[in-house]
Nucleic acid binder design. Structure first.
Lengths: 146, 146
DNA sequence: GCTAATGTCTCTAGCAACTATAGGTTCAAG
DNA sequence: CTTGAACCTATAGTTGCTAGAGACATTAGC
Protein backbone atom coordinates (compact mmCIF):
# COMPACT_ATOMS: atom_id res chain seq x y z
CA UNK A 1 0.00 0.00 0.00
CA UNK A 2 1.31 3.41 -0.99
CA UNK A 3 0.84 6.68 0.83
CA UNK A 4 -0.38 9.61 -1.20
CA UNK A 5 3.06 11.17 -1.52
CA UNK A 6 4.57 7.99 -2.95
CA UNK A 7 1.65 7.57 -5.30
CA UNK A 8 2.13 11.14 -6.44
CA UNK A 9 5.81 10.62 -7.14
CA UNK A 10 5.16 7.32 -8.88
CA UNK A 11 2.51 8.77 -11.14
CA UNK A 12 3.71 12.33 -11.68
CA UNK A 13 0.52 13.77 -10.22
CA UNK A 14 0.70 16.26 -7.39
CA UNK A 15 -0.69 15.32 -4.02
CA UNK A 16 -3.43 17.98 -3.89
CA UNK A 17 -4.48 16.95 -7.38
CA UNK A 18 -4.92 13.34 -6.25
CA UNK A 19 -7.11 14.49 -3.37
CA UNK A 20 -9.02 16.66 -5.82
CA UNK A 21 -9.62 13.69 -8.11
CA UNK A 22 -10.98 11.76 -5.17
CA UNK A 23 -13.20 14.67 -4.21
CA UNK A 24 -14.79 14.88 -7.65
CA UNK A 25 -15.16 11.10 -7.83
CA UNK A 26 -12.58 10.29 -10.49
CA UNK A 27 -10.72 8.16 -7.97
CA UNK A 28 -12.54 6.01 -5.41
CA UNK A 29 -12.30 7.06 -1.76
CA UNK A 30 -9.02 5.58 -0.57
CA UNK A 31 -8.63 3.19 2.32
CA UNK A 32 -7.24 4.83 5.43
CA UNK A 33 -4.48 3.90 7.86
CA UNK A 34 -5.09 3.81 11.61
CA UNK A 35 -4.06 7.47 11.65
CA UNK A 36 -6.51 8.42 8.87
CA UNK A 37 -3.98 8.66 6.07
CA UNK A 38 -4.86 7.51 2.57
CA UNK A 39 -3.47 4.18 1.37
CA UNK A 40 -3.46 3.17 -2.27
CA UNK A 41 -3.31 -0.09 -4.15
CA UNK A 42 -1.70 -0.89 -7.50
CA UNK A 43 -5.14 -0.78 -9.08
CA UNK A 44 -5.56 2.85 -8.07
CA UNK A 45 -2.07 3.62 -9.28
CA UNK A 46 -3.00 2.27 -12.70
CA UNK A 47 -6.22 4.22 -12.72
CA UNK A 48 -4.30 7.36 -11.89
CA UNK A 49 -1.75 6.65 -14.63
CA UNK A 50 -4.64 6.34 -17.05
CA UNK A 51 -6.05 9.66 -15.91
CA UNK A 52 -2.70 11.39 -16.13
CA UNK A 53 -2.00 10.10 -19.60
CA UNK A 54 -5.41 11.12 -20.83
CA UNK A 55 -4.97 14.59 -19.28
CA UNK A 56 -1.61 14.86 -21.02
CA UNK A 57 -3.45 14.18 -24.25
CA UNK A 58 -5.80 17.03 -23.46
CA UNK A 59 -8.91 15.03 -22.65
CA UNK A 60 -11.21 16.99 -20.32
CA UNK A 61 -11.96 15.36 -17.00
CA UNK A 62 -15.53 14.64 -18.03
CA UNK A 63 -14.31 12.69 -21.07
CA UNK A 64 -11.91 10.80 -18.81
CA UNK A 65 -14.76 10.00 -16.46
CA UNK A 66 -16.64 8.49 -19.42
CA UNK A 67 -13.60 6.56 -20.61
CA UNK A 68 -13.04 5.11 -17.13
CA UNK A 69 -16.66 4.06 -16.96
CA UNK A 70 -16.42 2.38 -20.33
CA UNK A 71 -13.18 0.61 -19.51
CA UNK A 72 -14.97 -1.10 -16.64
CA UNK A 73 -17.26 -2.88 -19.13
CA UNK A 74 -14.74 -4.71 -21.34
CA UNK A 75 -17.16 -6.81 -23.36
CA UNK A 76 -19.09 -3.82 -24.73
CA UNK A 77 -18.41 -2.33 -28.13
CA UNK A 78 -15.65 0.22 -28.23
CA UNK A 79 -17.62 2.58 -30.46
CA UNK A 80 -18.14 5.08 -27.65
CA UNK A 81 -14.47 5.04 -26.73
CA UNK A 82 -13.61 5.63 -30.33
CA UNK A 83 -16.05 8.54 -30.53
CA UNK A 84 -14.54 10.24 -27.48
CA UNK A 85 -11.05 9.87 -28.89
CA UNK A 86 -12.13 11.20 -32.28
CA UNK A 87 -13.81 14.19 -30.65
CA UNK A 88 -10.61 14.94 -28.83
CA UNK A 89 -8.61 14.56 -32.06
CA UNK A 90 -10.91 17.04 -33.79
CA UNK A 91 -10.57 19.49 -30.91
CA UNK A 92 -6.80 19.26 -31.05
CA UNK A 93 -6.77 19.75 -34.81
CA UNK A 94 -9.00 22.77 -34.48
CA UNK A 95 -6.76 24.33 -31.89
CA UNK A 96 -3.71 23.71 -34.05
CA UNK A 97 -5.34 25.39 -37.04
CA UNK A 98 -6.22 28.47 -35.05
CA UNK A 99 -2.87 28.65 -33.33
CA UNK A 100 -1.11 28.50 -36.69
CA UNK A 101 -3.12 31.52 -37.83
CA UNK A 102 -2.19 33.36 -34.65
CA UNK A 103 1.45 32.47 -35.14
CA UNK A 104 1.42 33.92 -38.64
CA UNK A 105 -0.04 37.17 -37.46
CA UNK A 106 2.26 37.43 -34.45
CA UNK A 107 5.25 36.83 -36.70
CA UNK A 108 4.14 39.55 -39.05
CA UNK A 109 3.77 41.92 -36.11
CA UNK A 110 7.13 41.09 -34.60
CA UNK A 111 8.97 41.10 -37.91
CA UNK A 112 7.70 44.53 -38.79
CA UNK A 113 8.73 46.07 -35.49
CA UNK A 114 11.77 48.13 -36.39
CA UNK A 115 12.72 48.78 -32.76
CA UNK A 116 11.96 52.50 -32.77
CA UNK A 117 9.55 54.24 -30.44
CA UNK A 118 6.13 53.06 -29.38
CA UNK A 119 4.52 55.66 -31.62
CA UNK A 120 5.89 53.85 -34.68
CA UNK A 121 5.49 50.37 -33.27
CA UNK A 122 3.77 47.95 -35.60
CA UNK A 123 2.77 45.68 -32.76
CA UNK A 124 0.67 48.34 -31.11
CA UNK A 125 -0.62 49.50 -34.45
CA UNK A 126 -1.69 46.06 -35.57
CA UNK A 127 -3.35 45.35 -32.26
CA UNK A 128 -5.23 48.61 -32.44
CA UNK A 129 -6.43 48.14 -35.94
CA UNK A 130 -8.42 45.09 -36.77
CA UNK A 131 -8.36 45.97 -40.47
CA UNK A 132 -4.71 44.89 -40.67
CA UNK A 133 -5.77 41.46 -39.62
CA UNK A 134 -6.53 38.91 -42.30
CA UNK A 135 -7.04 35.77 -40.27
CA UNK A 136 -10.46 35.12 -38.84
CA UNK A 137 -9.41 33.44 -35.62
CA UNK A 138 -12.58 32.18 -33.98
CA UNK A 139 -13.65 33.42 -30.60
CA UNK A 140 -13.82 29.92 -29.20
CA UNK A 141 -10.08 29.57 -29.14
CA UNK A 142 -10.31 31.04 -25.72
CA UNK A 143 -13.10 28.92 -24.38
CA UNK A 144 -12.12 25.44 -25.53
CA UNK A 145 -10.94 23.37 -22.65
CA UNK A 146 -7.34 22.28 -22.61
CA UNK B 1 -21.83 58.44 -26.59
CA UNK B 2 -22.63 54.75 -26.79
CA UNK B 3 -24.49 52.63 -24.29
CA UNK B 4 -22.85 49.41 -23.23
CA UNK B 5 -24.98 47.26 -25.51
CA UNK B 6 -24.08 49.25 -28.60
CA UNK B 7 -20.43 49.23 -27.63
CA UNK B 8 -20.63 45.49 -27.23
CA UNK B 9 -22.19 45.02 -30.65
CA UNK B 10 -19.70 47.41 -32.25
CA UNK B 11 -16.70 45.67 -30.76
CA UNK B 12 -17.79 42.06 -30.63
CA UNK B 13 -17.36 41.92 -26.87
CA UNK B 14 -20.20 40.78 -24.67
CA UNK B 15 -21.75 43.23 -22.26
CA UNK B 16 -20.82 41.39 -19.05
CA UNK B 17 -17.28 41.09 -20.36
CA UNK B 18 -17.07 44.86 -20.81
CA UNK B 19 -18.22 45.36 -17.23
CA UNK B 20 -15.71 42.77 -16.14
CA UNK B 21 -12.91 44.63 -17.93
CA UNK B 22 -13.92 47.78 -16.13
CA UNK B 23 -13.99 45.94 -12.83
CA UNK B 24 -10.43 44.67 -13.21
CA UNK B 25 -9.24 48.04 -14.41
CA UNK B 26 -8.55 47.26 -18.07
CA UNK B 27 -11.11 49.86 -19.07
CA UNK B 28 -11.53 53.14 -17.18
CA UNK B 29 -14.71 53.63 -15.17
CA UNK B 30 -17.26 54.84 -17.69
CA UNK B 31 -19.19 58.10 -17.48
CA UNK B 32 -22.78 57.62 -16.42
CA UNK B 33 -26.08 58.90 -17.73
CA UNK B 34 -28.59 60.63 -15.47
CA UNK B 35 -30.05 57.16 -14.88
CA UNK B 36 -26.65 55.67 -13.96
CA UNK B 37 -26.06 53.82 -17.21
CA UNK B 38 -22.58 53.62 -18.68
CA UNK B 39 -21.76 55.87 -21.61
CA UNK B 40 -18.73 55.31 -23.80
CA UNK B 41 -16.65 57.46 -26.11
CA UNK B 42 -14.87 56.51 -29.33
CA UNK B 43 -11.61 56.41 -27.38
CA UNK B 44 -12.95 53.64 -25.17
CA UNK B 45 -14.26 51.83 -28.20
CA UNK B 46 -10.77 51.82 -29.68
CA UNK B 47 -9.27 50.66 -26.43
CA UNK B 48 -11.77 47.82 -26.34
CA UNK B 49 -11.01 46.88 -29.94
CA UNK B 50 -7.35 46.73 -29.00
CA UNK B 51 -8.13 44.45 -26.06
CA UNK B 52 -10.33 42.23 -28.14
CA UNK B 53 -7.79 41.83 -30.88
CA UNK B 54 -5.02 41.07 -28.41
CA UNK B 55 -7.26 38.49 -26.71
CA UNK B 56 -7.97 36.95 -30.10
CA UNK B 57 -4.23 36.62 -30.51
CA UNK B 58 -4.06 34.78 -27.22
CA UNK B 59 -2.41 37.47 -25.10
CA UNK B 60 -3.25 37.05 -21.42
CA UNK B 61 -5.04 39.97 -19.81
CA UNK B 62 -1.96 40.87 -17.79
CA UNK B 63 0.09 41.21 -20.98
CA UNK B 64 -2.65 43.36 -22.47
CA UNK B 65 -2.60 45.53 -19.38
CA UNK B 66 1.13 46.05 -19.93
CA UNK B 67 0.66 46.76 -23.64
CA UNK B 68 -2.04 49.33 -22.91
CA UNK B 69 0.20 51.00 -20.36
CA UNK B 70 3.02 51.15 -22.86
CA UNK B 71 0.86 52.47 -25.67
CA UNK B 72 0.04 55.45 -23.48
CA UNK B 73 3.71 56.52 -23.59
CA UNK B 74 4.32 56.83 -27.35
CA UNK B 75 7.77 58.39 -27.24
CA UNK B 76 9.32 55.52 -25.30
CA UNK B 77 11.23 52.70 -26.95
CA UNK B 78 9.12 49.86 -28.19
CA UNK B 79 11.51 47.24 -26.84
CA UNK B 80 9.10 46.20 -24.12
CA UNK B 81 6.21 45.94 -26.52
CA UNK B 82 8.37 43.81 -28.75
CA UNK B 83 9.35 41.58 -25.83
CA UNK B 84 5.72 40.97 -24.87
CA UNK B 85 4.81 40.09 -28.44
CA UNK B 86 7.81 37.77 -28.76
CA UNK B 87 6.91 36.05 -25.51
CA UNK B 88 3.43 35.48 -26.83
CA UNK B 89 4.82 34.19 -30.12
CA UNK B 90 7.04 31.73 -28.26
CA UNK B 91 4.09 30.58 -26.14
CA UNK B 92 2.01 30.00 -29.26
CA UNK B 93 4.81 28.12 -30.98
CA UNK B 94 5.31 25.95 -27.92
CA UNK B 95 1.65 25.10 -27.78
CA UNK B 96 1.61 24.24 -31.48
CA UNK B 97 4.58 21.90 -31.07
CA UNK B 98 2.99 20.06 -28.21
CA UNK B 99 -0.41 19.89 -29.85
CA UNK B 100 1.15 18.38 -32.97
CA UNK B 101 2.68 15.64 -30.82
CA UNK B 102 -0.71 15.03 -29.22
CA UNK B 103 -2.35 14.90 -32.60
CA UNK B 104 0.10 12.24 -33.76
CA UNK B 105 -0.56 10.12 -30.74
CA UNK B 106 -4.32 10.55 -30.93
CA UNK B 107 -4.26 9.60 -34.60
CA UNK B 108 -2.29 6.46 -33.84
CA UNK B 109 -4.79 5.55 -31.15
CA UNK B 110 -7.81 6.13 -33.32
CA UNK B 111 -6.34 4.46 -36.40
CA UNK B 112 -5.55 1.29 -34.49
CA UNK B 113 -8.99 0.95 -33.04
CA UNK B 114 -10.49 -1.89 -35.01
CA UNK B 115 -14.00 -1.33 -33.71
CA UNK B 116 -14.27 -4.51 -31.65
CA UNK B 117 -14.98 -4.68 -27.94
CA UNK B 118 -13.53 -2.48 -25.25
CA UNK B 119 -11.33 -5.33 -24.07
CA UNK B 120 -9.40 -5.16 -27.35
CA UNK B 121 -9.61 -1.39 -27.73
CA UNK B 122 -6.32 0.26 -28.52
CA UNK B 123 -7.51 3.62 -27.21
CA UNK B 124 -8.08 2.30 -23.72
CA UNK B 125 -4.91 0.26 -23.91
CA UNK B 126 -2.73 3.16 -24.99
CA UNK B 127 -4.20 5.43 -22.35
CA UNK B 128 -3.58 2.84 -19.69
CA UNK B 129 -0.01 2.17 -20.66
CA UNK B 130 2.40 5.05 -20.74
CA UNK B 131 5.07 2.84 -22.31
CA UNK B 132 3.22 2.94 -25.63
CA UNK B 133 3.68 6.66 -25.67
CA UNK B 134 6.71 8.05 -27.41
CA UNK B 135 6.07 11.77 -27.25
CA UNK B 136 7.05 13.62 -24.10
CA UNK B 137 4.30 16.19 -24.06
CA UNK B 138 5.12 18.60 -21.29
CA UNK B 139 2.88 19.04 -18.32
CA UNK B 140 2.53 22.75 -18.84
CA UNK B 141 0.36 22.30 -21.87
CA UNK B 142 -2.50 22.32 -19.45
CA UNK B 143 -1.48 25.30 -17.41
CA UNK B 144 -0.45 27.81 -20.05
CA UNK B 145 -3.03 30.51 -20.43
CA UNK B 146 -4.84 30.74 -23.68
C1' DG C 1 -49.24 60.10 -21.40
C1' DC C 2 -49.12 55.13 -20.73
C1' DT C 3 -47.63 50.69 -21.13
C1' DA C 4 -44.84 46.97 -22.54
C1' DA C 5 -40.60 45.41 -24.02
C1' DT C 6 -36.07 45.73 -23.94
C1' DG C 7 -31.87 47.30 -21.91
C1' DT C 8 -29.25 48.25 -18.00
C1' DC C 9 -27.85 48.20 -13.05
C1' DT C 10 -25.48 45.61 -8.92
C1' DC C 11 -24.37 41.56 -6.70
C1' DT C 12 -23.42 36.88 -6.22
C1' DA C 13 -22.21 32.45 -7.70
C1' DG C 14 -20.46 29.21 -11.08
C1' DC C 15 -17.26 27.03 -14.77
C1' DA C 16 -12.43 24.03 -15.47
C1' DA C 17 -8.81 22.10 -13.21
C1' DC C 18 -6.38 22.79 -10.27
C1' DT C 19 -3.00 25.49 -6.61
C1' DA C 20 -2.08 27.63 -2.28
C1' DT C 21 -2.62 28.56 2.46
C1' DA C 22 -3.62 27.80 7.42
C1' DG C 23 -3.72 25.19 11.27
C1' DG C 24 -3.63 20.82 12.99
C1' DT C 25 -2.22 15.40 13.22
C1' DT C 26 0.64 11.35 12.30
C1' DC C 27 4.59 8.94 11.14
C1' DA C 28 9.58 7.50 10.62
C1' DA C 29 14.31 8.38 11.85
C1' DG C 30 17.79 9.32 15.10
C1' DC D 1 11.38 10.85 22.78
C1' DT D 2 11.85 14.44 19.98
C1' DT D 3 12.23 16.50 15.63
C1' DG D 4 10.87 17.19 11.03
C1' DA D 5 8.70 15.59 7.06
C1' DA D 6 4.55 14.06 5.36
C1' DC D 7 -0.15 13.89 6.05
C1' DC D 8 -5.09 15.67 7.26
C1' DT D 9 -9.29 19.06 6.48
C1' DA D 10 -11.21 23.18 4.95
C1' DT D 11 -11.23 27.31 2.60
C1' DA D 12 -9.91 30.62 -0.74
C1' DG D 13 -7.48 31.95 -4.92
C1' DT D 14 -6.27 31.44 -9.95
C1' DT D 15 -7.92 32.99 -15.32
C1' DG D 16 -11.35 34.91 -18.05
C1' DC D 17 -15.22 35.08 -18.22
C1' DT D 18 -20.69 33.53 -18.00
C1' DA D 19 -25.21 33.11 -15.80
C1' DG D 20 -28.69 34.33 -12.67
C1' DA D 21 -31.71 37.27 -9.56
C1' DG D 22 -34.18 41.27 -8.69
C1' DA D 23 -34.50 46.18 -9.43
C1' DC D 24 -34.22 50.53 -12.23
C1' DA D 25 -33.96 53.12 -17.03
C1' DT D 26 -35.06 53.86 -21.57
C1' DT D 27 -37.53 53.59 -25.76
C1' DA D 28 -41.28 52.32 -29.14
C1' DG D 29 -45.83 52.07 -30.16
C1' DC D 30 -50.48 53.47 -29.29
Amino acid sequence: MLTIGKLGRASGVKVPTIRYYEQIGLLPAADRSAGNQRLYTRATQERLAFIRHARDLGFPLEAIRDLLGLSDRPEQSCAEVDAIARTQLLAVEGRITRLLALKTELERMVDHCAGGTIAECRVIEVLGNHAHCSADHGRDLLTVSE
